[in-house]
């Protein structure tokens, strides 16, 4: 129950164009390992690490076990939506880490 309340606190209805003082907010779709989609709204100049942290915290994931990719390329922690040229509604895919040897 507590978790639900916490989630509700975080969730806010984001209007289509949220204008703020130092940057426009964009909405990003994140598709998880099982195909479920979560929406995030963030400023275009905020480092993506914040989104990764929020996603991993929400889903109880270890950040070193997942990779966030945009069109097949891994996104760096310091990259921003502006640098990546992300548009409103763009999709970030979460991939599970891979290992092999045999």
């Amino acid at each position: 129950m507590d978790g639900d309340k916490h989630d509700e606190k975080q969730k806010t209805k984001a209007p289509a164009d949220t204008e703020s003082a130092d940057g426009k907010k964009i909405r990003i779709k994140v598709r998880g390992l099982t195909g479920e989609e979560v929406y995030f709204s963030m400023k275009a100049v905020t480092p993506m690490k914040k989104l990764f942290d929020a996603y991993c915290k929400k889903n109880g994931l270890d950040q070193s076990s997942v990779r966030f990719t945009l069109d097949g390329e891994r996104i760096g922690d310091e990259a921003t939506a502006k640098e990546l040229d992300l548009q409103d509604g763009d999709l970030i895919e979460v991939m599970h880490y891979q290992v092999g040897g045999m």
Binding site: K29, S41, M42, T46, L91
Partner: peptide
């Protein structure tokens, strides 16, 4: 093309107020 995010979708807000992170290497 896949459908975009509906206008009334619930979004998780990511704040950028706490800029405690060090400068990126």
């Amino acid at each position: 093309r896949p459908a975009g995010i509906p206008d009334d979708a619930d979004c998780i807000e990511i704040s950028d107020s706490d800029s405690d992170d060090a400068a990126p290497p």
